[in-house]
Design a protein around this nucleic acid. Structure first.
Lengths: 359, 359
DNA sequence: GCAAGTTGCTAAAACGTTTTATAACTTTGT
DNA sequence: ACAAAGTTATAAAACGTTTTAGCAACTTGC
């Protein structure tokens, strides 16, 4: 009869490898973190090639895996970043997170996700959870009222990249859309196709990206001499559905010719409203949406929209973060992605005689 | 002139709190982890209420935050779980992850995400990254060929919950759809509405959920005496778009009456194919899709589909995992979510005379 | 043949917790 | 009054790394 065997196998540590190889644990540590090769002639650690080979072979044979808690404790880094967005189930953000994940993993980082639901107190609590976990840096899409919480994190010295939404006056890197141009682009395309009464549906939240898109809209309307038609409607986050339907219905009733929906979510609610009201697009109302969603190409008619490269947003935000993490005094930089207009029938050239039939 | 001030403020540790309070660090530790209150009369640690108050007050005042690396190192747990799915940008999974995140955070856990792109080698590498990070448990939606890698993790003793896709013979908890019933349900609804030539488009991957949906389809076709019409088409993951279009086109040419698309992704490609081929749904072909997507309700006609509660999938999988983590000898359990049919015009009762006009 | 440099390695001190064993003191029972 | 039991707290040993300081031994330059 054997004594009961301990189910959890004793973890193999750096010490076991060192003993087996007949060297010090320090040497094993150096071999495992390949940074001992004099990268640039600096006073790096030196190990003979044969020792490296021997130790790696033994580590492999013993199935050694470094304990990252111990490593983090001693070194102060976790090789983990936090990504805070408003909702990871929102396609715009899940796409970005996916790209971040890709590049982060291949750079040896893992990513902790957190969603704020656009609530500042959740943002604050997420930031505190993630910083307490000891992330090496954060990519943050802030929310309305989140400036203070983010500032505190930045002040603490943790590398931060602001994604999609800006907070003024912070010494951080940023990756965002040229929102003003994006807003103006919507007006430009519609104007060129003969629409004049162009209105915009927005939120009442204080989010830089939305605000700038509004600004772009206003500016563009002024530039083409349509400021008398410029009108921005506001919905409250959390009750967008009904709100958008009412707004669209009213606007159409008042003779609006085209509407811009400057957000992923707003756009989807807009389509819902269009269906509910039985509107014919673009005859009853033209529309330009934002971001990307499979529905835009499947809908009849296809939906014109202003997109942004989520790949660039994701990849660049990680790269900027990584620079800050791995090289302490990297200056902050800003990466602006340009909006891309993707055409669709929802903003097709206006048939000017359309309403005459009913008049 | 002052000497240059050190930018990174010295971290405040348990030791600082202990010194300030005039107690031992052990006591502070016990107070911070509130598990000393005799939960059930066990020989738990005891601290006087006034000491608790004093220490918490001081901890707060000094702005003490426990170092989780140290805690993990000593205790062996990280209060982090890993979630491995095929693609977090896939709406089905991003929805689930969102629910997991919600409940995990409120239970004091953080979640590390990883996507496999349905590639077994990526799955393996993700599993190894996550286990090396020391996650307390894993929620895994495996992929074709992933059984070995997952088995190894399970054998190592790490708590695992299988999500959406099963691997036979493993002692783990599971959360999945009643796939056989879901597959049969599609046939049932279509049959009831007068469709007979019902075919199914599937993948050539070995994923349990898809296989069982096929099985349900086959079984149901047999039960209603339609096995002569039963036909399963296969697309290869990675080149689904063209493939689906070709399959649908062929099938319609051969007089198919209805098709079932047993996956989120397949369904979207199916709609794309329908648009590309200019089919009239349901007259040219009825269809039933799977899972949920905003496009289903916005499309014209609305799309009937078989959905599953992603909330339950997410919440339950976390709960089952947590039980395993926090109570070592919890027996494995399985949670089956029932498919829900959400009606749409894409499977509306068949107009039997439709083709006679061309005959 | 000897100072100066180079190479390959080691010893040992952290890092900040958790947790066991035990001490000191107070109350209770008899 | 004294043992037993109960209460509150402490000391100290881990946990598994990283990283600094330094030590032999061997080259090299002169």
């Amino acid at each position: 009869m054997f004594r009961k065997v301990w189910t959890m196998v004793k973890r193999v540590t750096i010490r076991d490898v060192a003993r087996e190889a007949g060297v010090s644990i320090a040497l094993v540590s150096f071999v495992m973190n390949r940074d001992h090769r004099r990268a640039d002639g600096s006073v790096a650690y030196r190990v003979s090639d044969e020792t490296v080979a021997r130790i790696t072979e033994i580590a492999e044979r013993l199935n050694y895996h470094p304990n990252s808690a111990a490593s983090s404790l001693r070194s102060g880094r976790t090789r983990t970043i936090g990504v805070v967005v408003s909702d990871i189930a929102n396609r715009f953000f899940s796409d970005i997170v996916r790209y971040i994940e890709n590049v982060a993993y291949s750079a040896g980082y893992t990513v902790l996700c957190a969603s704020t639901d656009e609530q500042a107190d959740k943002l604050e609590s997420m930031l505190s959870v993630l910083t307490n976990k000891g992330v090496d840096g954060l990519i943050i899409a802030t929310c309305s009222g989140g400036a203070d919480a983010v500032s505190r994190v930045v002040d603490s010295g943790l590398p931060v990249v602001l994604l999609d939404r800006d907070i003024a006056g912070l010494d951080v890197s940023r990756v965002m859309l040229d929102n003003v141009r994006a807003g103006a682009m919507g007006v430009g395309k519609l104007y060129a196709n003969g629409y004049r009464r162009i209105e915009l549906v927005s939120y009442d939240m204080g989010i830089s990206s939305i605000g700038e898109r509004e600004e772009g809209y206003r500016r563009a309307m002024r530039e083409v001499g349509l400021q008398r038609f410029a009108r921005i409607h506001r919905t409250t986050y959390g009750n967008v559905g009904d709100s958008v339907t009412r707004i669209v219905s009213d606007a159409v009733g008042r003779g609006v010719e085209a509407m811009i929906f400057p957000t992923n979510t707003l756009s989807l609610y807009a389509l819902q409203a269009v269906n509910a009201l039985g509107l014919k697009i673009p005859n009853d109302m033209a529309m330009i949406c934002f971001d990307d969603n499979e529905v835009f190409d499947l809908y009849n008619p296809t939906i014109a929209r202003i997109g942004q490269s989520v790949e660039m947003l994701g990849v660049r935000s990680f790269e900027l973060l990584r620079e800050k993490i791995e090289c302490a005094d990297t200056p902050s930089s800003t990466y602006i992605v340009e909006p891309q207009f993707i055409d669709g029938l929802s903003s097709a050239p206006r048939l000017t005689d359309k309403k005459h039939t009913t008049k």
